[in-house]
């Protein structure tokens, strides 16, 4: 297992390099000049512009710029500075926590709701409950996050407060701890909940058809034990895999949710970074997201081996 992990980490290096170079190139290709944009409407002294350009290696070719950047990360843990001189790592520190909180809130909601709905649908397969659950997952999948976000913000955030006088779900910011994350977390988890519900249902229905479930029944076990122990334990394997891989997706998806609910996370920061053409911010955040993806996938693979004894990594 140890050797497997090391091999996977080595394999991750080209992925990380490729992804960051790609993002670097895209930001490089964006129209407009970041230093001009920095000054806004004011005319800026061309001498100062030249100095800043020199400082940030903006006059060098793409690959050279990239090398300066990536060697800073690799050898000094330095993700660069914003054009205003703030180190990117410092800028991201608190924001990363916000996005992690949001993503984990969403992940927990996804796991609980998806599991329960999927289980319920599977046990009522072919009946009204099943059909209703499947239909609502389809709805959830087909409506864009932007729409569910604003609609829920209006209904549960604004109207509910007006009607009851109590603020159940804050509509912006993270001032109220966990409570602030509930609504954005649900919005972020929306499509994932739908997919996980469907996956759970399919995998449980499939599992309940297998021979070892028939054996478990023939052993005289209660239906509860047959489904809950023998069935669920097997159906859990694809679910956990999906959940693990979804953590990266949720962190990436946070950009829309954080913008809607004005949460100060890296998603919102990324949005502003792209807007201002702040290369170090954009590339820094994307690098971190790619790292999260890679680590999450590695953890998923290891969990897979723990959950399914037939799989052994050498």
């Amino acid at each position: 297992m140890g050797r497997y992990i090391i091999r996977r980490l080595i394999q991750a290096i080209p992925v990380l390099l490729g992804a960051t170079l790609f993002i670097f190139a895209i930001v490089f290709a964006l129209p407009g000049d970041p230093i001009e944009a920095l000054a806004g409407e004011k005319r800026q002294d061309p001498a100062i512009t030249a100095i800043i350009r020199e400082q940030y290696h903006l006059n060098d070719p793409l690959l050279v710029q990239y090398w300066y950047y990536i060697s800073g990360i690799l050898f000094h843990g330095d993700f660069g500075k914003t054009f205003a001189g703030v180190p990117v790592t410092q800028l991201m520190a608190g924001k990363f926590q916000v996005t992690l909180n949001l993503a984990f809130t969403a992940l927990v909601m996804e796991a609980i709701i998806g599991l329960l709905l999927g289980l319920w649908a599977a046990l009522r397969r072919g009946r009204a409950t099943d059909t209703a659950i499947l239909a609502s997952t389809l709805l959830l999948i087909s409506v864009p996050t932007l729409v569910t976000g604003f609609v829920l913000q209006l209904w549960l955030g604004v109207w509910l407060k007006q009607v009851t006088g109590i603020e159940f779900f804050p509509i912006a910011g993270v001032g109220q701890g966990l409570q602030s994350y509930l609504l954005p977390g649900f919005v972020l988890a929306g499509t994932s909940i739908a997919y996980l519900t469907r996956l759970t249902r399919t995998s449980l229905v499939e599992t309940l058809r297998s021979d070892y479930i028939r054996t478990a029944t023939a052993k005289g076990l209660s239906r509860r034990r047959v489904v809950g122990r023998h069935g669920l334990r097997n159906a859990l394997i694809p679910m956990v895999t999906y959940l693990g891989a979804d953590l990266g997706v949720l962190m990436g998806g946070a950009i829309i949710t954080e913008t809607i609910f004005n949460l100060p996370g890296i998603g919102l920061q990324l949005y502003q970074g792209v807007y201002l053409r702040e290369q170090p911010i954009v590339v820094g955040i994307v690098t971190i997201l790619v790292l999260v993806y890679i680590v999450a996938n590695l953890i998923v693979d290891m969990l897979y081996a723990v959950l399914d004894p037939r799989i052994r990594y050498e």
């Binding site: 021979d211 070892y212 005289g220 097997n234 959950l307």
Partner: peptide, 24 residues
């Protein structure tokens, strides 16, 4: 019925690989 099944009337199946639970 559950009291009889497995305790007083038991059954073995053709393909033991698929009839045994792979994860236990």
């Amino acid at each position: 019925r559950t009291q009889v099944r497995g305790q007083r009337i038991a059954m073995i199946f053709q393909d033991a690989l698929s009839a045994l639970n792979p994860v236990f």
